[in-house]
Each structure stands twice: as structure tokens, then as C-alpha cells.
């Protein structure tokens, strides 16, 4: 099935992510799973808001291993939730392009309390229903993420719009000029601290 196939393909991107905390804290991970849980939670507590509900009850359980998460389609509207660091986004887009997904939307969310900007990519498939959401979190004061417009040309405009609204720099984008705002606009309206 497409969902399992794409989940396995995207899981390969996480191999070195899982490896890093293991390399750094080699002794701790296996044996002290419970002690590592609040520590890993402190690191991962910023990102995904879906885990916040699980956080309260995960105090006793270890957090789920990083990787693509299957979500309840009826409740959420998408099937796979993939949380990645910014440098892995291009690789994920390449995997999805190989499997003939199409790009639905790219947008940003301003988490001002966490001082982070989140970029959300929506992908869908024409033949079999499988909606994949790729997320990445960026530092609010220096938001940079590589562009995927060489893989998906439709992303060209989506990224320009996200740059317009949030000020996120997509490195490698051919022309990151304002699309919806006037050409000389230097403000980013959808930031939470924007004052007209």
C-alpha cells in the first residue's frame, strides 16, 4: 500500500537522526529509557503541538521514536506526519517526487511563544489517497530552509508567498520577490508581532 511504502521510504531519512543521540549518549539510551524520556522530551517539547497532549501522559512512557507518524485520517485529514530538520526537507521532497506525489500547499506558522517558525508542506497523490505533511521548525530570528522549487516547480510560488507573509528565506530560490504584497514591501504581515 502506498502509505506503508512511503512511510518506509521516509523512515530512511531518520536513520542518522536516531543515530545522533545514540552516538552522543550511547550508554543512556537503551538502559535508562525512562530517565532519557524527560531529557529527550525537553529537547523535543518545542516542536509538534500534537505531542503536547501526549506529553502529560508520556512522563512515564518514553516518547515515540522520531520518524514518520501515522495519524488518524478521520480526525486530522492527513495520513502521515513527518517532522524533519530543515536540511532534510529536500531529500524528503525527492523521495515523494519519485513516488509521484504532487505538491498541494506550502505554508508557515508563527509560533512566537517558542520563538520558532514552522514550515508545513502538504503533499497528496493522484491515484491513491495518501496525504503526507512534512514539517520543519526554524529559528525565528534566522529562518532559512533550502528550496524545493527545482523538484516541484509549483513550490516556486508557494515559497514566495510564505516568504511574503513570514520572512522565511528559501535558500536557492530563483527569485524570492514579493508575490502578493507590493514589490517594495518590507513587512511580513502574518507574523504575530506585526503592526500595520
Amino acid at each position: 500500500m502506498l502509505l506503508t511504502k512511503i512511510k518506509e521510504a521516509l523512515n530512511s531519512l531518520y536513520e542518522d537522526i536516531q543515530a545522533e543521540p545514540e552516538a552522543a549518549e550511547a550508554a543512556e539510551t537503551e538502559a535508562k529509557a525512562e530517565e532519557a524520556a524527560p531529557e529527550a522530551q525537553a529537547e523535543e517539547s518545542k516542536p509538534v503541538e500534537q505531542e503536547e497532549g501526549a506529553e502529560a501522559e508520556a512522563a512515564a512512557e518514553p516518547p515515540p521514536p522520531p520518524g514518520p507518524r501515522e495519524t488518524d485520517y478521520k480526525a486530522k485529514g492527513y495520513h502521515l506526519d513527518v517532522d524533519l530538520p530543515p536540511e532534510k526537507v529536500v531529500a524528503a521532497a525527492e523521495i515523494l517526487n519519485r513516488e509521484n506525489f504532487f505538491i498541494e500547499a506550502i505554508t508557515g506558522v508563527d509560533w512566537i511563544d517558542d520563538q520558532q517558525l514552522e514550515v508545513v508542506y502538504d503533499f497528496n497523490h493522484f491515484d491513491e489517497l495518501c496525504r503526507v505533511v512534512v514539517r520543519t521548525r526554524l529559528d525565528r530570528n534566522n529562518p532559512e530552509v533550502p528550496t524545493i522549487s527545482h523538484i516541484y516547480q509549483g513550490a516556486n510560488w508557494h515559497e514566495r508567498e510564505t516568504h511574503d507573509f513570514f520572512g522565511i528565506i528559501f535558500t536557492g530560490h530563483p527569485n524570492l520577490e514579493p508575490l502578493l504584497l507590493p514589490e517594495d514591501a518590507d513587512f511580513h504581515p502574518l507574523l504575530k508581532d506585526f503592526k500595520a
Binding site: 503541538e49 485529514g77 498541494e104 502538504d122 496525504r131 505533511v133
Partner: peptide, 30 residues
């Protein structure tokens, strides 16, 4: 509830999708 949700419908011009990011208040967060 807090979280983000997506829904798509078929408008006359194609697939219109709405992504709702809610923080539990009576206004959308995004």
C-alpha cells in the same frame, strides 16, 4: 482542540483545501 487539521473539497476550479491550526481559543491561530 489544539492541533492542526486539513480538509479538502472539490470547488468548481479544483481542490480547495483549508488547513486550520487551532490553539483552543475562539479564534484560529493560523
Amino acid at each position: 482542540e489544539k492541533g492542526d487539521y486539513y480538509h479538502a473539497v472539490e470547488a468548481a476550479r479544483g481542490s480547495f483545501g483549508v488547513r486550520v491550526v487551532s490553539d483552543g481559543t475562539n479564534q484560529a491561530y493560523r
